[in-house]
């Protein structure tokens, strides 16, 4: 049995997690996106929604961190967070056989 764990990811009974768009392996149950491609760019590369430079308001670095399917490059996760902090966004599902 497998389970769609969100719009992009499917988790299989063996614990593997694949991309729903291209079936490429992206991770496993413990870390569903550990094989994903991660990039960090300046917050304003997120588009016009970020109205000002973060440096006006904060001293810590802020980054736009994106996680992509390594194969089809579908965007799996996007966050704008302090760059000196590891990502806290994480999940781990138990999928019955």
């Amino acid at each position: 049995m497998s389970l769609f764990i969100d719009d992009n990811l499917e988790q299989h009974s063996d614990g593997s997690v694949t991309c729903r768009h291209c079936s490429h392996l992206v991770g496993d149950a413990a870390a569903p996106m550990n094989a994903a491609r991660v990039t960090e760019t300046a917050p304003r590369t997120a588009g016009p929604s970020v109205r000002e430079d973060a440096a006006l308001f904060a001293d810590r670095p802020i980054v736009f961190r994106r996680t992509f399917c390594p194969e089809c490059l579908t965007l799996l996760q996007a966050e704008i967070v302090p760059g000196d902090e590891v990502s806290s966004r994480h999940r781990s599902l138990i999928v019955g056989a």
Partner: peptide, 14 residues
């Protein structure tokens, strides 16, 4: 102001 507070999901942007 330094960073958006309403996050996105499943590849959606904040």
């Amino acid at each position: 102001k330094a960073l958006p507070l309403a996050g996105g999901l499943a590849g959606g942007l904040p």
